[in-house]
Amino acid sequence: MKNDIISIIQDNDISEYYSLKHSGVEGYAFPDHEALRIVQLCKLLLIPILGGDVYSLNDSTIESLDDNWYYDRTPSESYYVTIQR
């Protein structure tokens, strides 16, 4: 399995996702349940997730909530600890 989001979507039957290209973002948005599945899969595959943005689906329109998060790995932190956090 490749370590990119497209491969994770295709290889794990993740059927509910939305392209963000119309918003000028090269990425995808996922409903809560699919996002949690992806987080668990990335953890199992030892793929770090370094951040994300929060979107809302309203009347089939995806809108940014101008909320996001990120993770900065500390210099002394191991790769494994980064994945687990």
Rank of each mutant, 00 (worst) to 15 (best):
Gly27Leu: 04
Gly27Val: 04
Asp11Thr: 13
Ile8Leu: 08
Glu77Ala: 09
Asp59Gln: 15
Asn58Ile: 11
Thr74Trp: 06
Leu36Asp: 08
Tyr17His: 11
Ser23Val: 09
Asp53Asn: 12
Asp66Leu: 12
Gln40Thr: 14
Pro31Trp: 01
Glu26Arg: 05
Ile62Thr: 03
Leu20Ile: 03
Asp4Ala: 00
Arg73His: 05
Phe30Tyr: 04
Asp11Lys: 13
Tyr71Ile: 12
Ser64Asn: 08
Ser23Leu: 15
Ser7Met: 05
Tyr80Met: 11
Ser15Ile: 13
Ile83Lys: 01
Leu20Trp: 03
Asn3Thr: 12
Phe30Ile: 07
Ile83Phe: 06
Tyr71Asp: 07
Asn3Gly: 06
Arg73Ser: 09
Gln40Arg: 13
Ala29Ile: 03
Asp53Gly: 14
Gly51Gln: 07
Asp53Gln: 12
Tyr79Phe: 15
Met1Lys: 09
Ile62Arg: 05
Arg37Ile: 00
Pro31Gly: 02
Lys2Asn: 13
Asp59Pro: 10
Leu46Tyr: 09
Ser15Arg: 14
Asp4Gln: 04
Cys42Thr: 06
Pro48Asn: 07
Tyr70Lys: 13
Lys2Cys: 10
Val54Glu: 12
Val25Trp: 04
Ser19Pro: 07
Ser56Phe: 11
Val54Pro: 06
Leu65His: 09
Pro48Glu: 03
Leu45Pro: 00
Asn12Phe: 05
Pro48Asp: 07
Tyr70Ala: 12
Ser23Gln: 13
Leu20Arg: 02
Glu26Cys: 09
Ala35Lys: 06
Ile38Ser: 04
Gly51Glu: 02
Asp72Thr: 14
Glu77Phe: 09
Gln10Thr: 14
Asn68Asp: 15
Lys21Leu: 11
Val25Ala: 01
Ile47Gly: 00
Leu36Asn: 09
Ser78Glu: 08
Asp66Met: 11
Ser64Lys: 03
Arg73Gly: 03
Val54Lys: 10
Gln10Pro: 00
Tyr17Gln: 07
Leu65Ser: 14
Glu77Ile: 07
Phe30Glu: 02
Gln84Pro: 04
Leu46Asn: 13
Tyr70Asn: 14
Glu26Pro: 00
Ser19Arg: 07
Arg37Ser: 06
Asp32Phe: 05
Ala29Met: 02
Gly27His: 04
Leu44Ala: 11
